[in-house]
Design a protein around this nucleic acid. Sequence first.
DNA 1: GTGAAAGCGCTAACAT
DNA 2: ATGTTAGCGCTTTCAC
Lengths: 359, 359
Amino acid sequence: MSITLEDISKATGFSPATVSRVLSNSRYPVNAATRQRILEVAQTLGYRPNLSARSLRTDRTHTVGVLVDDIMSPFVPPIVRGIQDHLMQYGFSCLIVNSDWSPDFEYAAIENLLSHSVDGIIFVEYSHLAVHEALEQSQKPHLFVHRLFGGAVKNSIVPDDYHGATLAMRHLIDLGHRRVGYISGPENWHTSRGRLAGYRDELARQGITFDPVLVQPGDWEFDAGYAGARRLLELAERPTAVFATNDVMALGAIYGLQDAGLAVPADIGVVGYDNRDFTKIFRPQITTVSLPAYEMGRTAAERLLTQITHGKSDFEEIKITGQLYVRESCGADAALRTPEEPLAATVFRRVLLNKQPEE
Amino acid sequence: MSITLEDISKATGFSPATVSRVLSNSRYPVNAATRQRILEVAQTLGYRPNLSARSLRTDRTHTVGVLVDDIMSPFVPPIVRGIQDHLMQYGFSCLIVNSDWSPDFEYAAIENLLSHSVDGIIFVEYSHLAVHEALEQSQKPHLFVHRLFGGAVKNSIVPDDYHGATLAMRHLIDLGHRRVGYISGPENWHTSRGRLAGYRDELARQGITFDPVLVQPGDWEFDAGYAGARRLLELAERPTAVFATNDVMALGAIYGLQDAGLAVPADIGVVGYDNRDFTKIFRPQITTVSLPAYEMGRTAAERLLTQITHGKSDFEEIKITGQLYVRESCGADAALRTPEEPLAATVFRRVLLNKQPEE
DNA sequence: GTGAAAGCGCTAACAT
DNA sequence: ATGTTAGCGCTTTCAC
């Protein structure tokens, strides 16, 4: 049914060995004319290597496992895309599995991936990290992207939350704000800790004393942003701006402030974090710092591939920096706005609208 | 290094064949005690089948290819999740590849998937559908989910846009609206045609004459919603509600109406379509009809698996219905609101906040 | 520069 | 109910 090496071998008269050497891109020497001929025949016959056979023989699948908490979580798709784009360049594919934040599912998924003989595994967002014996024994490289909990861990790629918070604060301070309310994430997320440290340190660098009453607790959800903003307004000395440490809370905060009769940004500025899609279509458009999901994924794939090719070698936590997107909610001059790039899907639609008539 | 059937064979004294029969869940008869013993040993030794070897032998990989336009497109992750959840139940994994709306990339991806000997392929959203010869020859089942362009096609699973539009219109009419503005999608998307037909037919069913001036063109983007709403307000006879056929345009429409000095929903109601995440956090919360992405994915996987197991057999286009989510923007009574369910990630966070202390 | 042959781990046909 | 054997398609020694 499907064309095999042997078919090509018969068709060309060369042995399967030679054919293999040509078709598997081996750098074993083969006469140029021979190579040429084999390539031609393979092309016309429509040869497609049987990857199962190849992997059985070589114990390398050119496939990596990607273990995500949930493909539907907001930052997972861009992380995955970053991984895929890099892998594809090197002829690797990926098998994606969800763990649903369950150690048991995670364990089963790892077993499954190992059964598939993946060449390495990338853990996205969640990882129970109870050292998986089989995984350790397999000596397959594996690393962590955007791991949400716990402290720094080897072989992990995380966002540089400290730096991001610094960017947001620096921007607000440049805008003249001295008293900036802060709405935090849950304490056990290292992202929360990083952003808070950035907030405090940037204040210090600008010679502004940190005032703990300005720090409101939050849990990343809308209501926490709303409530936090309201509490900030009850302070004896009100802040003139609010740094909500994710976009969802920033949205809640804006509504909270508006409900209290304040205009954003005219009366009080707001900055979010993450650069979620909705920050661009909401009004006022939300100034925010990007969570560099795509870049983290790409970096992860890059490091994994290095380890797959050159052998395992631990690296220290890598931090990827995001950038500040100046929009409206902070109150900055229009001239300071960051130019926006349309989403890929939008670009595609535009092209299509102009080109493709009714099918 | 890794445990093989032969290891188990030696450890138990049974032949590899018997061991295989037990460990591959063959329904070939094996003595209960033998089975028991083999299972035990396999367990303690940590046997994990080598899927490459198995697939080389059986020509079945228990893997399906999922060819998406872009994993980052809004509806793709839930579709993929639906596919994965169903596949997982039957021990199937999936290989996900992006086509970026390019026929060439799509072609290459199919070749790649066939090389991986996937048992079937699901095309998500985009498909050039220039009948891929190798794919046809392979006789592997393949089908289409949420195909965006062109007319009805066999073996495809699409949203029931007609029905969804009907739900939205019925709701608005029940609320007393007789004159409902309509903001359309691009004409060459069948989703646009389905929604428009639902709009017209539901009007007819309720004895309301269709007025073409109420139909404004759109391209799914924010600006089209905004402009469409403004144009509707310039009509001699203004509508009392607007049905924007996706949530992004609904958002644009709401801002357009607000900029014209109208309150939503007090002065004019708005209904969107798709049930995007932001409709729940925006104010007013947007009433919308869900695009049943997850269910479409699940159905696709189900049909594909049927074909993989029982042989290819074409089916006519399957339409999956979404449901109406009554929120605030339509102006319905609070009593009529659809109860909301939190996102999986949110639930997880809540659990974690209560349980997991500092690591 | 090319070919012959072995074997990766597994399953299935064919014995027994 | 169990064992023997062949072979899936490929790569890789090892010969020549």
